[in-house]
Each structure stands twice: as structure tokens, then as C-alpha cells.
Design a protein around this nucleic acid. Structure first.
Length: 271
DNA sequence: CAGCGCCCCTGCCCGC
DNA sequence: TGCGGGCAGGGGCGCT
């Protein structure tokens, strides 16, 4: 489930409990995530203190003196804090235990997520080096999208979800941003004028920041770090609503597939 | 080299 | 009530 807002909310929620603390032990119950959890992760982490953490795309980067632990939540992962040990459940794959017994626990039913170790500069890691700008960075603006799209026929939804163009816009927020912008998901990017890109950029930023403020979108797996759930789902206009009436004009929302992902739009509100 | 499918995996929901 | 099929928030990778 995690889209960018969930990643940001997760990192914000978890960090105050572990920042500056030293790792005392690490338990890896199931290393078979998207890529194997490094066998020496416990050795790498133990006796080192968490110096800082930040997010790049949907990756979380936890900085230690000897390198970075990079965590991705995939489709169904989450991180939570436990103040004291409690019995792990079926999909609780990794525990990182700090010296005050606080536990950072990684869970992921589908195991599409990953926990990797990076020596040296994370920005040149092969999974990060080709990523486009963050949606909240000044580099992500209408002129940028406009210039990249001239002469191309890619659909605008796939363009928005392409990590080389901009990171962090997943399926939910791509659908929502396009609805708010009045642009059909299938629209060819070369035919979209600069003004429409201005509206689109503003809506992508608005939708993502609103979701962050509200604690992320909760579908089936995500629970906030304190056990709270997100409230954004109540405000989705199109995602998951194919065949239902448009909340603005009451016409029936259409559902199509683009790049194997469901895309919902209003044939009346979106052109 | 860009673009398009495939696939990793479990859970859930729907229809029979 | 049981089971098979399809679908789910991501995204790297191999192939055309």
C-alpha cells in the first residue's frame, strides 16, 4: 500500500523513537524479501548508532557511521515501533532492537519490499542514481514536464508514474491528481499544453501533501506507527470507484487498464 | 535505448 | 462452505 505519503508518515512516526540510539541486536526471521536481507546485517548494525534518516523516492535511508540501511516497503510492508518485546506474528520478518529495548519491526506479507545495506554514498547506488526529482522539489515543475513530453506519445498516467520522470507518485495519487486536473489517464503527453502541466503539478503536490497531513491512505495493511490509521481514503474521488458515480457530476466513472494498473476516470470531468 | 510486459508473493474478494 | 481465478498500494529487469 505504501505510496510516498505512507513512507513519509512512517519515517516521521518511527524516527523519534530510535534516533541517536545504538543497536544492540538484530533478528532476521525471514531474509527472503524482494532481495535477500544481507546475511551480515546484524554485524553491520550492532554497536552502531542511528545518526539520521531521510527518504528518497519510496526508499527510507537510515544513516549509521559505517553506511546506510535502505528500506523499501513494497506493496504491503510496514515499519512499527514496539516499546517492549512482543511475540512476532506471521509476517514480522525483521526486528532491530535498540539498547533501551525499543524495537523497530519490519513486516511485509507479500515480501515485495527490501532491506539493503549501502556502503558509501547512497545517491550513486544503482537503485537511486537514475531516479527523477522528488515531487516536492523545485525541479518538479510544469516546464520540466512540458519539455520532457514534447514529441512523445506516452500516456500521461504512465508518465506520472515513471520514476525516471518524478518519484513517489503511485497508482492511487496518479489517478486522483489526474481527476483533479481534468485530464484523462490515457491522454498523450505530447498533446498536453504547458498550462495543463501547471495544473497537474499543483494537484500532484496538493494530493500528496494533503495525504501526508492526514496520515496516509489506509487500505488493508497500513497502520500508522502509533496504531493510528490514515484518513485519506475517505477523500478519494476516483481510485477504487470504477462504475460508481462521479462525486462531482454523478456520471459513471470508467475503469481501464494502463500498464497493468487500474485507472479510473470520469468521462465527463476529464478530457 | 526506449518501452512494454513479466514477475516476485500473500491475502482477499467474488462467483460458482 | 470450499475453491479457483483475478486483483491489489511497487518497481526492477529482461526482452523486443
Amino acid at each position: 500500500m505504501p505510496e510516498l505519503p505512507e513512507v513519509v508518515v512512517t519515517l516521521q512516526g518511527v524516527l523519534p523513537h530510535i534516533l541517536g540510539k545504538k543497536v544492540s541486536r538484530v533478528t532476521v526471521r525471514n531474509p527472503n524479501l524482494r532481495w535477500p536481507v544481507p546475511k551480515n546485517l546484524p554485524i553491520l548494525l550492532c554497536e552502531n548508532s542511528l545518526q539520521s534518516a531521510r527518504q528518497r523516492a519510496k526508499y527510507m535511508l537510515f544513516k549509521f557511521a559505517n553506511g546506510h540501511m535502505m528500506v523499501h516497503l513494497g506493496m504491503s510492508g510496514n515499519l512499527k515501533i514496539l516499546q517492549k518485546h512482543s511475540p512476532p506474528e506471521k509476517h514480522d520478518h525483521v526486528d532491530i532492537i535498540f539498547n533501551d529495548e525499543v524495537i523497530l519491526r519490519y513486516s511485509d506479507p507479500r515480501r515485495f519490499g527490501s532491506i539493503l545495506w549501502i556502503d558509501g554514498d547512497p545517491s550513486i547506488h544503482k537503485l537511486l542514481v537514475h531516479l527523477g526529482p522528488e515531487p516536492f522539489s523545485p525541479a518538479f515543475d510544469a516546464h520540466y514536464l512540458y519539455s520532457l513530453s514534447r514529441g512523445k506519445t506516452t500516456t500521461v498516467k504512465q508518465f506520472l508514474m515513471d520514476n525516471k520522470i518524478v518519484v513517489g507518485v503511485g497508482n492511487i495519487y496518479a489517478n486522483e491528481s489526474l481527476f483533479l486536473s481534468g485530464i484523462r489517464p490515457k491522454k498523450s503527453i505530447g498533446s498536453i499544453p504547458l498550462n495543463a502541466y501547471k495544473i497537474l503539478v499543483a494537484n500532484v503536490i496538493e494530493v500528496l501533501s494533503k495525504a501526508i497531513r492526514q496520515g496516509g491512505t489506509t487500505l488493508q495493511d497500513f497502520a500508522g506507527n502509533e496504531g493510528k490509521t490514515g484518513y485519506f481514503k475517505q477523500e478519494l474521488f476516483v481510485y477504487g470507484r470504477g462504475g460508481k458515480p462521479c462525486l462531482k457530476c454523478k456520471k459513471t466513472l470508467k475503469e481501464i487498464r494502463l500498464g497493468q494498473r487500474s485507472s479510473v476516470y470520469c468521462p465527463s470531468c476529464q478530457e
